[in-house]
Nucleic acid binder design. Structure first.
Length: 824
RNA sequence: GCUCGUGUGGCGGAAUAGGCAGACGCAACGGACUUAAAAUCCGUCGGAGUAAAAUCCGUACCGGUUCAAGUCCGGUCACGAGCACCA
């Protein structure tokens, strides 16, 4: 029976019956936790991206298994989330019903892929036995002051009447109805990821992750070294006081304290509390109007850098602490309330934004830095080098020295200090949506916010809920859910109506898999410290800043809560590339350029399809889909099968001691193949792994054609080829292995090792270059030293001809590669 | 706008540490086998040049370092990604 999907089915059945991929924690061998990012159970069948990610990572883990590792390789579903809810709004099919059905379909398809997942460790985030621990985690974070509530702006779609997650906002528009998103203040739950900003940065270098991903995280965290400097303020001719009656300090964050003497005004974010406090009665109406105007501005407007600056004078003044200058305080939305102190000192001579603003509103511009003394640089001069001018006692100081001097001076007055700021914000996790984990908090009119007691977990997500969006959380309208008793005082209270961001679900799932049935604890810490962290994590690059950062944060928080002993959840990370449609665009139903794996799998079998995915693309690059190369794999698989048919009846023993010259040549290729496939597959270079196996088969064909065949050796080579090919074509090779009369299963065999001595050749061919150009080639003993090579080359007739009477200036021999003669 | 990444034949892609560019395959062309086709096997396959060689050009473009550059450095262009008034 030649290879087809029938073979797939035969072995899938046998593997399941014999529990071949059952994970046994006690099995000997170093543990290896290999994980692919779990998938969202969407309606359609597995798409090409799933196959590309899962089947090839499975190949990798199969190799590791054969290499003797005790591989833990689970699979599950990221089952909460908006698509199911939106689908429900459209069709009326309940998210739970569609999700559970989709999970069943995907499980079946994943099994057809022939992956080594142990389904006993499956999890789905929408199940109460999972989200119970989501809620438990929330309570722990709350206890440890890592979860808190505050009023904050959210993305609001005026048409859908609902809050949208950041990831649903595409270029400032709603992903569903394309309306422009506006900002709205709501009281929300946050996780204090910023407490870990520095550690999240510090641990990056030690991770075996793509450099690009580390850079994205570095940028996202956005560490910025600067200073906080303060001003006293004056309003209507009187000094402003704080709540203690002391003079009010208006503090700004700046990275350019060196330009401090050039401050000509100060700007506050219009929505900030300090803005209201600073505003004079005379200006109040205007400032109010402006605040309203900016709150209505859509994100599109806000995001535009070309947008003209707007702003309004608050009526108050700041007093420059070093020169006593009275500078006006303005409100403008080019200052972000959430970053730094929400207040900025403006130095229009040395900042483009300040310059634009000052020019528009006729504010003073004072130059305080010159590239070198006396240079009339064009303003704004924003280069971070130069010498201070117009800066009184600091004149003539080089920029960095000036900065230190100014901050030191301010520090003596208690008006300045060096400070590090991060761009990273705390993680807003509240969602006014139905299909997610209910937040386990109760709002009591008497006691305030009260956590649900642990014994009452899980707070079950009710089934019968009206979830058509109308601006209110769907759960708020579900009487049976929202009404409860306060756990503290027993009086009537209400549950928190929001659900958690689904990124919370996926921020710790890798730690639940190994202990997925634990009903007492989130997981057994002792066991988790053995099996975790994940050794190899594979998934799309789109999660670089969100999921991968959140997971790192949660792991660190868990560590500090004593739940785990490691610092990082994913030691090594690989991003698979993206397979585009045949037209080079991202596959999408609306474009009509999607490619269905099923058709190929049905026609060619899972293994041909898997192997083609391995061979046709550079794994981390991906690229446009093109099925022309599939035939190459069919051909390759047929060649392997023919070789098996030729050798399956051979009973001669392989005797390594009796190899002829021809045998040794083939043995060289064999060992080179073992070495290359092992090294290439290790680093996810699957295309070159397959290429090396094709070379081996080409060499085998030549060997067979040569007529002098050592049967025992030939059989040994074919068996080794099967072992190397097994991770890529598991069903096919299992079948061939059986045909050859070998014991079940090929995956219980040891991965081939190569013999270094077989890779040593007596004689090698090197290129001889004259002045860097290849002139001719020559055979030399592989252990020849420079002097020997020089002698061989000089005695070659072609050398004199190539030299053409020139003198040898220098003779360079690069061992085993080439000789280069510099001639003049 | 800022930051990062990527540019190699007709195509997918190789080249791990500066050392023979184009492995392996697809497509194409030629041949063997065949009544024929399929399948299989053998060969050619970056460009110019030649009867064939020799030779020259060639890894987006310009320049540099080096005995030697796809690889390192400086600049330009194109594409892609991330961030987006972050003070």
């Amino acid at each position: 029976m030649s290879y087809s999907i029938e073979i797939d089915r035969k072995w899938q059945k046998k593997w399941e019956e014999t529990k071949l991929y059952k994970f046994d924690p006690e099995k000997k061998g170093e543990k290896l936790y290999c994980l692919e990012m779990f998938s969202y159970p969407s309606g359609a069948n597995l798409h090409l991206g799933h196959w590309y990610n899962y089947s090839l990572t499975d190949s990798w883990s199969r190799m590791k298994r054969m290499q003797g590792f005790n591989v833990f390789h689970p699979m599950g579903f990221d089952a909460f989330g908006l698509p199911a809810e939106n689908y429900a709004i459209k069709t009326g099919i309940h998210p739970q019903d569609s999700t559970l059905k989709n999970i069943a379909t995907m499980e079946k398809q994943l099994k057809e892929m022939g992956a080594t997942f142990d389904w006993d460790y499956e999890l789905a985030t929408c199940m109460p036995d999972y989200y119970k621990w989501n809620q438990w985690l929330f309570l722990k974070l709350y206890e440890n002051n890592l979860a808190y509530r505050k009023n904050a702006p959210v993305n609001w779609c005026p048409k859908c009447q609902t809050v949208l997650a950041n990831e649903q906002v595409i270029d400032g528009k709603c992903e569903r109805c394309d309306s422009e998103i506006i900002r709205k203040n709501m009281t929300q739950w946050f996780f204090a990821i910023t407490k870990y900003a520095q550690e999240l940065l510090d641990c990056l270098p030690q991770l075996d992750w793509p450099e690009k991903t580390k850079k994205i995280q570095t940028n996202w965290i956005g560490r910025s070294e600067g200073s906080e400097v303060s001003f006293f303020c004056e309003k209507d001719g009187e000094q402003l006081k704080d709540e203690n009656g002391d003079p009010l300090k208006l503090t700004v964050f700046t990275t350019r304290a060196d330009t401090f003497m050039g401050v000509t005004y100060v700007v506050v974010a219009p929505e900030s509390e300090i803005c209201a406090k600073l505003t004079t009665d005379a200006q109040r109406e205007e400032v109010e109007k402006y605040r309203e105007f900016t709150s209505k501005a859509s994100d599109i407007d806000r995001m535009s850098t070309t947008r003209e600056k707007t702003g309004v004078f608050t009526g108050a003044y700041a007093i420059h602490p070093l020169n006593g200058r009275k500078v006006p305080i303005w409100a403008s939305d080019y200052v972000i309330a959430g970053y730094g102190t929400g207040v900025v000192m403006a130095v229009p001579a040395h900042d483009e934004r300040d310059f634009e603003f000052a020019t528009k509103f006729g504010l003073d511009i004072i130059r305080v830095v010159e590239s070198k003394e006396g240079a009339a640089d064009e303003l704004p001069y924003c280069e971070k080098k130069g010498v201070l001018v117009n800066s009184d006692e600091f004149n003539g100081l080089e920029m960095h020295k000036g900065l230190d001097a100014i901050v030191s001076k301010l520090a003596t007055m208690d008006m300045g200090v060096k400070k590090v700021n991060y761009r990273l914000r705390d993680w807003l996790i509240s969602r006014q949506r139905y299909w997610g984990t209910p937040i386990p908090m109760i709002h009591c009119p008497e006691c305030g916010v009260v956590p649900v007691p642990e014994k009452d977990l899980p707070v079950l997500l009710p089934y019968d809920v009206e979830f058509t969006p109308d601006g209110e959380s769907p759960l708020a309208k579900c009487e049976s859910f929202i009404n409860c008793k306060c756990p503290k005082c027993g009086k009537d209270a209400k549950r928190d109506p929001d659900t958690m961001d689904t990124f919370v679900d996926s921020s710790w799932y890798e730690l639940r898999y190994p202990d997925n049935k634990n009903s007492e604890k989130i997981f057994d810490s002792e066991w988790i410290n053995k099996i975790a962290p994940v050794d190899k994590y594979v998934g799309g690059p789109e999660h670089a800043a969100m999921h991968l950062l959140y997971s790192r944060f949660i792991a660190k928080a868990m560590r500090d809560m004593g739940l785990v002993k490691f610092d990082e959840p994913f030691k090594s990370l690989v991003h698979q590339g993206i397979i585009l449609g045949p037209d080079g665009n991202r596959m999408s139903k609306s474009r009509g350029n999607t490619v269905a794996p099923d058709e190929y799998v049905n026609k060619y079998g899972s293994d041909v399809f898997r192997t083609y995915l391995a061979f046709g693309f550079s794994y981390t690059e991906g690229g446009p889909w093109d099925d022309k190369g599939l035939q190459a794999i069919v051909k390759f698989v047929n060649r392997v099968e023919r070789l098996v048919d030729d050798t399956m009846t051979i009973t001669d023993k392989y005797d390594p001691a009796s190899l002829t010259k021809a045998d040794k040549d083939l043995n060289y290729v064999l060992n080179y193949t073992i070495k290359s496939v092992t090294a290439d597959s290790e680093r996810f270079s699957f295309n070159t792994s397959i290429a090396r196996m094709m070379e081996l088969i080409n060499a085998l064909t030549k060997y067979q054609q040569s007529g002098e065949v050592n049967k025992g050796f030939l059989r040994h080579v074919v068996e080794t080829l099967l072992l190397l090919f097994a991770p890529f074509a598991p069903h096919f090779t299992e079948e061939q292995w059986e045909k050859m009369g070998n014991e079940y299963s090929i995956f219980n065999q040891a991965w081939p090792t190569f013999d270094e001595s077989a890779l040593v050749k007596d004689e090698i061919e090197i290129a001889v270059q004259i002045n860097g150009r290849v002139s001719f080639k020559v055979d030399i003993p592989s252990n020849a030293e420079q002097a020997d090579v020089e002698a061989i080359v000089k005695s070659d007739a072609r050398f004199d001809e190539a030299l053409a009477g020139r003198n040898i200036v220098k003779f360079i021999y690069v061992k085993g590669r080439l000789a280069n003669i510099v001639a003049k």
